[in-house]
Design a protein around this nucleic acid. Sequence first.
DNA 1: GAATAGCGGAACGAACCATTCCGTTCAACT
DNA 2: AGTTGAACGGAATGGTTCGTTCCGCTATTC
Lengths: 227, 227
Amino acid sequence: MPNPSKVPNPPHAGVARTGPLSGRKAQANRNDEAILRAAREVFVADPSAPISAVAKEAGVGISALYRRYESKEVLLQTLCADGLARYIACAEAALDSGAGPWETFTDFVTAVVDADVHALTVNLAGTFTPTPAMFEQTTRAVDLAGQILDRARAAEAVRPDFAFTDIAMLLEQLTAVTGPSPERTRELRHRYLAMHFDALHPEAARGEMPGPPPSDEELGARWIPRG
Amino acid sequence: MPNPSKVPNPPHAGVARTGPLSGRKAQANRNDEAILRAAREVFVADPSAPISAVAKEAGVGISALYRRYESKEVLLQTLCADGLARYIACAEAALDSGAGPWETFTDFVTAVVDADVHALTVNLAGTFTPTPAMFEQTTRAVDLAGQILDRARAAEAVRPDFAFTDIAMLLEQLTAVTGPSPERTRELRHRYLAMHFDALHPEAARGEMPGPPPSDEELGARWIPRG
DNA sequence: GAATAGCGGAACGAACCATTCCGTTCAACT
DNA sequence: AGTTGAACGGAATGGTTCGTTCCGCTATTC
């Protein structure tokens, strides 16, 4: 038992913020953010990146990481849960926006793409053992996305042969689009997103989409750890 | 100089095939094929797979690999050149089929997707230093694909804002689609390919595709070795 | 029956990486 | 001014992975 007193998670979360925040605690708080941001950036670009790359990107030492996260796996889990939360937030925001069914749908998908959330969830899934909390988050996410698509389909804004599970594959395809910089990546993804949207209108359909859509099992398989 | 007498490439290529081919040489010939097939399968699925995985997949020992290829890098180069050749073959076949501009285009893209050629070229590119021969192959491939798209665009079968370089990104997106088996992967890719084709018709366009298409530099960047 | 092409797989050594450990810094408090 | 300890940087550690080499073994071939 080499390290029984390890802090389970970012230890600065509950710190009382006294005014403008300076000194050591301020730096620690800033590091909390910097590390999470760096981890997101690094692991989105390369899910198998070494943890030292995260430290370098964050401009901190490795200790700063291990002070906050018990292990690499915990960091990945945190990141993934964060991604799921963002996904859910995108869905809720779109649903609450009061826009029409089609805009709700496009807003949702666009937001997910911009947040690079898909890479955070699916690409990271399989590199760690999922927590029960993630299952609940997934359930919620699936439920919300289902509502959004059902609405659009009911309004005949989306071709009927586009299944719910096709959304995941659409997102997966877009994460394969990358440019030399994050901004350019975003721009390129919007370019192809526009194409996908064009294809989704009922009038665009020339015949049914061939083959069955992905099954739940096929999508769920991504979550079982690879080794 | 530990191994000055290494055979540069498959040593059985020029063997005079005497009748039904049995014995040691027959097995060697069969191994030539098996190894290339296994390498394709393994590296398409995982470009960073260990060489031992290829041996296992081919059902041979590691020696059998190193007898034919000086190093892993040479094997990858061979595989990539093979992929480019297949790509070129797909383009030539489509052009020679005598079909209309739209069918020529769809035949070409479908064939490339089915041959999984994109994974063989782009996904492998960057894991080894390209040979001059590959540049020539690339030039030829670019030229042919350009002809195919130009023809389709001239016939107004394809929306005018779809640029030549968008083809690469379309293929890239489709290689991100995978199923539990090669057959299912193929089926799923056809599903989304149908969507892409739907979006490519001029009438499907609702507004121009946003942002500039990928530049040649952006696409060429994939070929510089990562490390 | 000897020679050897072809081969399987263990052995080797280098590289990589998660994790630990130790010495340093410096804000906060005495 | 001195002391303390949270926070930290980064070298050291130990384990794993993987490309490559090496050592017999087999079964053709002469």
